[in-house]
Design a protein around this nucleic acid. Sequence first.
DNA 1: GTAAACCCTCTACCTAAGTATAGAGTCAAG
DNA 2: CTTGACTCTATACTTAGGTAGAGGGTTTAC
Lengths: 145, 145
Amino acid sequence: MATFNIGQLAKKTQVKVETVRYYERRGLIPNPPRRESGYRQFSQIDVDRIRFIKFAQAIGFTLNEIAEMLALKVTTSATCGDVTQKIDEKLCDVEDKIKTLLRMKNTLINLKKACKEPDLSSKDCPILDSLNTEEYKNDEKEILK
Amino acid sequence: MATFNIGQLAKKTQVKVETVRYYERRGLIPNPPRRESGYRQFSQIDVDRIRFIKFAQAIGFTLNEIAEMLALKVTTSATCGDVTQKIDEKLCDVEDKIKTLLRMKNTLINLKKACKEPDLSSKDCPILDSLNTEEYKNDEKEILK
DNA sequence: GTAAACCCTCTACCTAAGTATAGAGTCAAG
DNA sequence: CTTGACTCTATACTTAGGTAGAGGGTTTAC
């Protein structure tokens, strides 16, 4: 089985060398065997593992959550349902974030409408002006509810 | 004009005392006058300022960006257009984030579909199993593009 | 056989937005 | 006049996910 050094692993996975060592410290990849010199020896399994980590990150999992999922893999009593439960939790997170961002978007659009005259001096800008008035507070309540 | 201590300001704005001092250090609120004892004296203006900061944060601006906007207020040459430009930039940020989250959501839904049998042992879970196969990599490309 | 490129550990640093703590001084009520 | 609540500064710590550098050893190609 082909083995390679940390630099080659980093290249294959598009990750920095320091990041690989960081993942090892965090327990996200197993402690690799070492050569006489102390050089780490990696294999294809580690490549797959790091790609999995990067994929899971890209869909919104944190490294802690990824560690939990990887732990499931070695817990023989864990079921497929344990994994789908984590997916469901993450789905809720993602949906909440989307809702919040949509509310932000609406508020920004409303602010923009309120501020249509590009040549008004900043003194007269309704947004900066709101610092001295109560006007934006409706939006504030809107966004926080 | 009524003045009050930092604790009262914090209460009115639902912010921690340390956070008020932090905002002062960051230049987000002006250095307040002090009593003989060194106690800070705040007024309604500071209440409004902190509420503005919290509002702007809630719609996605960072403290640095908020500082920039506050700086516009004192730059007499700044126009209302300068503010709408910042709003537009933030609108793009927010829209990008929404797009990314929607892609994440789709991928999560697809993963969930792939993993329908709640009683399969984790050995057979298609997601954890993907660690040893190439299967999830299509999703990976999907999400990264 | 030597120089470049690589690897090792350990420690510190980065962003963002605070939060916490120690040790000291101040204020208000009883 | 004392006690408890408040405030002051300064410094360090937090989370998350890395990144950077110092000071050394190793490997490889010419």
